[in-house]
Design a protein around this nucleic acid. Structure first.
Length: 908
DNA sequence: TGGAGAGGAAGCTTT
DNA sequence: TTCCTCTCCA
């Protein structure tokens, strides 16, 4: 046996020893076969998946580059490879060769290399804004006969695509979102427009728009997100370009849609002759956590997969269920399962908690989102007030159904200075300033990015009028169809007066000339960067400086620097893009040559530095603030931040303490699901709830509110149906049981591995009395404080002396600035708020008899919601962490105000 | 061309 | 309530 084999065996043995019997069964299932791993929450899914991949390489000797692993997000793919790298560091396996990524990124890679077989060459990705733009163009440019055609269609064909009201004038009353949704649905089912057109039953209106939209995308050399999957599927089912693949693993299988299922089959088809290397698939998922039906995910794929392979093989899919839960306590699991059992037609699950101690979930009903937010703060502050800090802020999260629900909570967190951050990585790449600089990078990287050209041509404002822009737009569309002429060149011709349709004033001509000059000069710089794509040995510092030079040129000459100069946050965010660009390392995105393939089949990657960078962020490489290291850096004072997230965003994560507010009819289940969705939509809402509650490890807090809303708005009448049969049962409690006795408190400390305080040092009974007694007055607006000082007032001084009493307030006061409120929080607050915020007082309470300082939710231009997503946490104390402050648009889209009003600024 | 003001709609999850 | 869109006017 060679030494490398011995090392492999040792690694494998270690790895298997670390698994429970069911996990081991799954991991060691034969490579040649079909395996479904049903992994409930907290059952070690990621561990099993990584171990499985390692097993396939170590034991079954499948080369890394013959394995595909699809994950739900890019982040998950990165985590997987990182874990594997650690796991396999002592072996000769090159983990980076594994084809790991989202379906979208893998498909785009395949199309880039083999797309020319379908005539797809040098295509770019159309992000949502691009595809919106294209569809709007389609609707704006309808000819007379088109309008007549549409007008002649029966109502039943058009009604579902019409805007509700009001927008009659625009787009002939059509709602582009509704059209896009349905087109996306067709694409997700693998239906191309020409197929749809010829289907016996089809909607003529949809068919019309689908064809127009697709034609336009093609003419613009663009693929939307769905196209990446759709055309890749066409490609791989027509040409055997992926026949080198020996095993396909799919994570989060419950969230795959039809086209992804088809892609899985195609990828797994495998070797042309060797049967051992065909149809080898491992999927991991949990039907109970399927919460992406709106993206056409279908949990039925589990059954479809079984049936598909049953037709081809005598032996059925091997199914292994993981039932040992290492995350949550029994009460949390029992509660979650009880909720899920309300769903008809579901395979019962019995997860077994591996944790001995358990505390009942806490539930409370309130009368407004603001009260609910206060209730959450109240609970957090009591947890933080326990001696010896069993919990840190970073151990807690608040999970909401809809992003806008975070508003009331954020407001209260700001007021009570509870540090928090939002989990929503995508937001950064959505910010106005980030999008703007990326658009400039796009027009420099590509000659032909019409949509980006149109967005940059008058942003920042250069004094071009609406009519001028419209005439340029029309001309560009005509001249650049199917890449006949480049956008850049056409613009040049417009400036040179070669088209009668566009008349420019001398001032406009001058403006456009310098716009084009900026592009051509930037391109000269860009070309010089291309040497850095191939040659690794080049001086990294020089590379960074050259890249930064190009970036600065673009930022300054585009006028964006001037545009964002007044807002330090915007400027900081742009600088973050610069940092990312400078640090960007090009990773070869090659695929192994397929059996029977020639080198000439493979397209060479001719993209320039900027283009590659832009594609790398195209599928949203999300950088999320790292919560795990908050106690490191030798600084125990910093206790991180409470995580605020949508339930969807929390998937795969866990916290010792989880809050799930908004358990009301209309919120969870969401109103749209109840009104238009039918029982299946409600089931999906219930699964959302399930995902949320099963994020909790030790303590679970849930709340609801019923409220008459304001002005008839957003009336919430009832507590969520999901709680109907659970309220008032022994499954839940209204106050935290862990505080009730010394015995339970001791268990709480033990479960989080902290030293139990002595009875003498902590007046538990008193604490408990205050905890129960002060809640109502606090929620109704009375002052409240929980700290050493207030305790002293009410109990014997001796008791309190010398103990490690802590509190949220004290914790915060150790730092002289608000943590996590966004670096520029003070700027965001109205002037009237500033004096309240500046001096850090020992109490995080409002003075008795006075209402909390008026915090008005930010309305952008000047003020922002303190969403702090800070990838660059300041490690030095000299600089503030650059805060990504989202722009108005993304924030407002995500957080419309629906009854979650800011606390009133007026006294009643 | 672009800012101010009026009027009306509104809600969700994301590659 | 908030925000977007449209219209009007400087």
């Amino acid at each position: 046996m060679s030494s490398s084999n011995a090392a492999d065996d040792a690694v494998l043995a270690n790895l298997l020893a670390d698994l429970n019997p069911n996990q081991r069964l799954a991991v060691t299932s034969p490579a040649n076969g079909r395996l479904q791993i049903i992994a409930g929450p907290g059952t070690g899914k990621t561990k099993v998946l990584t171990s499985r991949v390692a097993y396939l390489m170590l034991k079954e000797k499948i080369p890394a580059h013959h394995i595909i692993v699809t994950t739900f997000t890019k982040k998950a793919a990165n985590e997987l490879t990182e874990r594997l790298e650690t796991l396999l560091k002592d072996t000769a396996i090159d983990v980076s060769k594994i084809l790991a990524g989202t379906f979208h990124s893998i498909c785009y890679r395949v199309l880039m290399i083999y797309g020319k077989k379908l005539g797809i060459e040098n295509y770019n990705i159309a992000d949502d804004r691009d595809s919106d733009h294209i569809l709007k163009e389609v609707l704006s440019n309808l000819g007379g006969s088109d309008v007549d055609f549409l007008a002649g269609l029966p109502d039943e064909d058009t009604i579902q695509f019409k805007a509700n009201q009001g927008t009659e004038k625009k787009y002939y009353g059509y709602d582009t979102k509704k059209i896009k949704r349905q087109i996306s649905k067709l694409k997700s089912s693998g239906i191309k427009y020409d197929t749809y057109e010829n289907m016996a039953i089809h909607n003529k209106c949809l068919s019309f728009f689908y064809k127009r939209y697709q034609t336009k995308l093609q003419q613009s050399c663009l693929l939307d997100f769905d196209d990446c999957l759709l055309y890749c599927n066409v490609l791989v089912s027509t040409y055997p370009v992926m026949n080198f693949v020996e095993h396909v693993l799919v994570d989060e299988f419950q969230d795959t849609n039809e086209i992804q299922l088809q892609l899985m089959y195609q990828f797994a088809r495998g070797h042309p002759t060797n049967k051992q290397m065909q149809d080898n698939v491992t999927i991991v998922g949990d039907p109970d956590q399927s919460i992406y039906a709106f993206r056409d995910a279908q949990a039925i794929n589990f059954e479809k997969m079984s049936e598909h392979y049953a037709r081809r093989y005598p032996t059925p899919c091997n199914i292994v269920s993981l039932t040992d839960n290492y995350r949550s306590t029994t009460d949390i699991l029992v509660f979650s399962e009880t909720v899920m059992r309300q769903q008809q037609k579901r395979i019962l699950k019995s997860l077994k908690s591996q944790i001995d101690t358990t505390f009942k979930p806490v539930y409370y009903n309130l009368t407004s989102p603001e009260e609910e937010a206060k209730w959450i703060c109240y609970q957090i502050e009591h947890l933080m007030a326990l001696p010896n800090s069993p919990f840190r802020f970073t151990d807690m999260s608040v999970l909401v159904r809809a992003a806008y629900q975070t508003r009331a909570i954020e407001n209260e967190f700001v007021r009570r200075r509870i540090p928090y951050f939002m989990i929503r990585g995508k937001a950064f790449w959505d910010r106005k300033e980030v999008v703007a600089i990326l658009d400039y990078m796009r027009i420099i990287a590509h000659d032909n990015d019409r949509v980006a050209f149109l967005r940059t041509i008058n942003y920042p404002k250069r004094g071009l009028g609406e009519k001028t822009i419209a005439s340029i737009e029309a001309l560009l569309e005509r001249e650049t169809i199917s890449g006949r002429e480049s956008v850049y060149k056409t613009l040049q011709q417009i400036v040179d007066n070669e088209f009668k349709e566009v008349k420019l004033t001398s001032k406009t001509r001058q403006t456009l000339t310098s716009f084009l000059k900026m592009i051509s000069e930037a391109r000269v710089k860009l070309n010089e960067l291309n040497i850095y794509l191939k040659n690794d040995s080049i001086d990294q510092d020089r590379k960074a400086s050259d890249v930064a030079d190009l970036f600065k040129f673009i930022y300054s000459r585009s006028g964006l620097e001037h545009e964002f100069a007044n807002d330090p946050n915007q400027d900081l965010n742009v600088k973050e893009v610069e940092k990312q660009l400078c640090e960007y390392k090009y990773k070869e995105e090659e695929l192994p040559l397929f059996h029977g393939g020639q080198e000439s089949d493979v397209a060479e990657d001719s993209r320039n530095y900027l283009a590659r960078f832009i594609h790398s962020v195209g599928f949203y490489e999300t950088e999320e603030e790292d919560r795990s290291h908050s106690e490191e850096n030798g600084n125990k004072k910093y206790r991180g931040k409470v995580a605020l997230s949508t339930i969807h965003g929390s998937k795969g994560l866990e916290w010792p303490v989880v809050f799930v507010p908004g358990l009301s009819e209309g919120l969870l289940p969401a109103r749209f699901a109840v009104n238009n969705g039918g029982p299946e939509a409600v089931d999906e809402e219930r699964r959302c709830f399930y995902v949320a509650t099963t994020r909790a490890k030790t303590l679970l807090y849930m709340s609801s509110y019923t409220s008459l809303g304001s002005g008839g708005w957003n009336v919430i009448e009832n507590v969520s149906r999901f709680l109907e049969r659970i309220r008032g049962t022994e499954h839940i409690t209204d106050f935290q049981d862990a505080f009730k006795s010394w015995d339970s408190l001791r268990k709480l400390y033990e479960v989080v591995n902290k030293e139990v305080p002595t009875k003498e040092s902590f007046p538990l009974q008193h604490f408990n009395k205050l905890y129960e007694g002060r809640l109502t007055p606090f929620i109704k607006g009375e002052s409240f404080s929980i700290n050493e000082e207030s305790f002293r007032k009410s109990v014997n001084d001796n008791v309190m002396s010398g103990i490690g009493f802590t509190s949220a307030a004290m914790e915060l006061n150790k730092k002289r600035r608000p943590i996590g409120l966004g670096a520029n929080i003070k700027k965001q607050l109205k002037p009237s708020m500033a004096p309240q915020m500046k001096p850090f007082r020992p109490l995080i309470t409002t003075p008795v008899g006075q209402r909390a300082p008026p915090y008005r939710p930010p309305s952008l231009k000047s003020n922002r919601a303190p969403v702090s997503i800070t990838p660059a946490i300041s490690s030095s104390n000299t600089n503030r962490a650059p805060a990504y402050i989202p722009d108005r648009k993304s924030s407002s889209q995500r957080r419309p105000n629906l009854g979650n009003r800011a606390p009133s600024t007026h006294q009643k």
